[in-house]
Design a protein around this nucleic acid. Structure first.
Lengths: 222, 222
DNA sequence: TGTTTTTCTTAAAGCAATATAAAGTTACGA
DNA sequence: TCGTAACTTTATATTGCTTTAAGAAAAACA
């Protein structure tokens, strides 16, 4: 499970966030000071850092900039904690470093889903890097797929299907696994549905990427 | 050459300033009353307004605030005329939206160089805007958006929505993220509310900037 | 080769998400 | 306090994605 570091000067907030994240199964480290936070980050190498923008001693923004310069944290996602109503454009400017921001007061459920989104994005990005060598980029943030500079806007299901298959190239995904991952366990759809979506993808990306493994399922190839 | 409007209740000063500015090649309009000045400004659309802070009937600061709300004067620079030593008026004046101030008594040479500085600044800004292809300026101080010189007055919610989307162009914002960031976690509004605001924005900015990503949310493109 | 199984293709139905218009609220300034 | 602008909701239309269905094709098997 993902490792998370929280940096906030208010002990209450630290406690609440930590409690909720631990309950959800994350590994959590907390710290009430920006400079200490940087030191911890270096050793702890968290997947996500939740960082309060407004802190009395060290400014969260500066902390973020410092963190961003550390090569060992290249994959670490930084998420700002801000009071609501603060200038978005300002935040955007600071966004040079931060990947997301959460507004206070933080609702636990929102926090969890946000962290999940961030870590998921992280997973995908790691794959993306591997994939980019072959000029096949699946960009979940922009919700587009790029192949040799060409850009494809895929509908939701097609995108999810492709993202799944491409997440492990050459590995065959069985039909019921695909159904479960893309459509979910609760929703039941016919078996042909997959075929149709595969066909749509082949239509758009060319016939060379998604191979049929008869009797089993499909796999993605470059 | 630049157009200048002078608003001051003292006829002497009007005459002196006008004489010197005309001699320097400026087009000058003069007026001895705040309210009349506002009317003239609307039609004359000056590049610079020289405005006396201390006037018997209407306060120069109020006049300035009124002028600043007029969209047609978005590019007009306002320069206060103050008696020397009035520290407070300087501060209040710049708060009210003035771009510069000149202390009385006015030395012609100082006046000219000051006006030149202001207009030059203005030119520079216009150029900058024209040159940047993505001339999409989101001005949070005045709640105004500019696109290729066109100015839009957006209501709060529309502005916040646009500011959010535009803060990360091409990135898709999910509907619940939009709701959280623009409306807040505690306030619950219907899902269609977003659509309606998007529609309003598209109506004003043109259909080309906010793209729908069906099933996910919206994104901003230049 | 004939039969069976599985997948492919296509069109069309079904459905969910979004767009739009209009009416109802709320907030705000004159 | 009235009138206007902003905001939200509601209802309906529309879009376009998803799914189904059914025949054709391909592969597997005997």
């Amino acid at each position: 499970m993902s490792r998370i570091l929280i940096i906030d000067d208010e002990q209450d907030i630290l406690d609440i966030l930590k409690y909720n994240l631990v309950k959800e199964g994350f590994e959590v480290e907390a710290c009430n000071n920006g400079l200490k936070g940087i030191e911890i980050a270096k050793k702890y190498l968290p997947d996500v850092i939740i960082l309060d923008v407004m802190m009395p001693e060290t400014d969260g923004i500066e902390v973020c900039e410092t963190l961003r310069k550390l090569p060992e944290l290249i994959h670490t996602r930084i998420c700002f904690l801000t009071a609501r109503g603060e200038d978005y454009s300002q935040i955007a400017g600071l966004d040079a470093g931060a990947d997301d921001y959460i507004t206070k007061p933080v609702k636990p459920r929102v926090l969890i889903s946000r962290i999940n989104a961030i870590t998921r994005r992280n997973e995908f990005n790691k794959q993306e890097q591997a994939e980019s060598k072959n000029a096949f980029i699946i960009n979940r943030e922009r919700y587009i797929v790029e192949k040799n500079g060409e850009t494809f806007h895929l509908p939701k299901k097609e995108f999810e299907l492709l993202a799944l298959l491409a997440s492990r190239p050459d590995i065959v995904f069985e039909r019921d696994v695909i159904l479960e991952k893309v459509w979910g366990t609760d929703i039941v759809v016919g078996d042909r549905t997959i075929d149709v979506h595969v066909r749509k993808l082949r239509e758009k990306l060319g016939d060379n990427h998604i191979k049929t493994v008869k009797g089993i399922g499909y796999k993605f190839e470059y």
